[in-house]
Design a protein around this nucleic acid. Structure first.
Lengths: 251, 251
DNA sequence: GCATCGGATTGATCTGGGTCAAGGCTTTCA
DNA sequence: TGAAAGCCTTGACCCAGATCAATCCGATGC
């Protein structure tokens, strides 16, 4: 195994997206022994669409990141009102080091594969390997920013603006993942049911449906089937979203 | 300067609350040289009530924590709609290491004293001193939890529930700071105008005023002047807030 | 003592989005 | 091939909270 070409990279590293240990294959600062230890506690789990991964209040003894599929974090009030507080797309991280129990329901909304670590060893390694913690801090700060953008949406935007925002958010994340966008014309497949969208946006599913119809009627979006959306002019959509966010569309 | 009594503790450490370097006086793991370096870049700034500390988009070359007074983080849309996304009480941390410009307006809503560090040296020390970064991660995760609780409030609670929640939140933080609460009967001084409350809650100030009057009429709260509130039965207030949050009132 | 000003309150009215209800379109399964 | 189940759409109506407007109250200044 001489160094003829690039060093062999394990498949798992590619799959893990931006999960904290992806660095292993590429990062010179890594202490190999430490990360090998972490690697040992790593395992994959699959879930079916609709399956609840953890219930709020239950013990949660792992952390991990989404490999493929979509998961959500949702809060529920006693009377059943539900508010989504996290949308986890591939490469997103779940789980809080230092907390025993889950604070939210974690639900797989599509078929889902996660890359998990048992929490205890993960925490140990976080303490021993500073840059894993630093990476996690970065990710947490990004999530906090996203949450605050989301708060503006929930608190002040109209139903129409909320829908336009959600489509834009998903389109952006989609595009930055696939690095695909045939100049101007953007195509998205919504990974959420109308009900899930309503939980994301703080609306009812009827209002979601009506506003999507309205955007379609007004030519802002085109729809094929129920979920496949084409956006003829992305700037127009952004306008509808009332968005002042930095919004660098393609990174 | 023999070690007769406890080591002399600088006043500043006490003042800084849970800011990342408070540990200096108490933490055995600290590398004194590192923290001495940080200490050197530390300075205090005062602001008057109503003063904007940083505008969204402006350069922000410091991080810091609130020593006394209240500051808020607020997002503004082009048409002037405003949503508060952060409420900073004494001991709360502001500023994101690794970001050049502020993402929100930071406003002093009362007279305010902050303990600041220039960002560059702070970042350096964060890299060199892992447990400062760990502390910051902890704090950021707490903020993320708070933001998600806030999202439930914005997305799903009624006006009355929102008001009750806000009063409870402030009472809790107040109490855990002062460790005072004459059995059951809780007293709070709202540090916010009706307008600021409306920006926190995603309501208009008229609705805030009406709902406060309603809670008063129904005996949930008692009011003296405009801001001084007595809560005869805290559990009753929590009920109005529709709150399932863990809610450990006194830590 | 009077005027001014920045909150705060209260009333009257309007409306965006919730609620309730009736279908419609696919997919699945028998 | 038909029935059931999920998901989505659309209509009719209603109400919580927004909007517009008048007033109040306490502090500050002259």
């Amino acid at each position: 195994m001489q160094k003829t070409t690039a060093a062999p990279v394990k498949f798992t590293h590619v799959q893990c997206g931006s999960c904290p240990i992806r660095h292993r294959a590429v990062c010179a600062r890594c202490d190999t022994d430490e990360l090998e230890r972490l690697e040992e506690t790593k395992y994959y789990r699959s879930f079916e669409a609709g399956q609840t991964i953890v219930w709020s209040g239950d013990r949660m003894d792992f952390v991990g990141s989404v490999v493929s599929g979509i998961a959500t974090l949702t809060q529920t009030m006693e009377d059943g009102r539900r508010q989504m507080v996290g949308l986890l797309l591939p490469s997103d991280f779940v789980g809080r080091p230092g907390r025993e129990t889950a604070a939210y329901d974690v639900v797989a909304t599509t078929d889902l594969v996660m890359c998990c670590f048992r929490k205890k060893p993960f925490e140990t390694i976080m303490l021993d390997t500073p840059h894993v913690g630093q990476r996690l801090l970065e990710m947490t700060l990004d999530e906090l920013d996203a949450a605050r953008e989301w708060m503006l949406l929930l608190g002040r935007k109209t139903a129409r603006e909320k829908i336009a925002s959600l489509i834009a958010i998903i389109a952006r994340r989609d595009a930055s993942l696939k690095l695909q966008s045939s100049e101007g014309r953007v195509v998205v497949d919504l990974p959420l049911t109308r009900e899930a969208m309503s939980e994301y946006l703080g609306l009812t599913l009827e209002t979601v449906s009506r506003q999507i119809s309205a955007l379609k009627r007004d030519g802002i979006i085109e729809i094929e089937g129920k979920r496949h959306i084409t956006i003829p002019d992305f700037d127009l959509l952004i306008e509808e979203a009332g968005d002042d966010s930095d919004g660098g569309f393609l990174v």
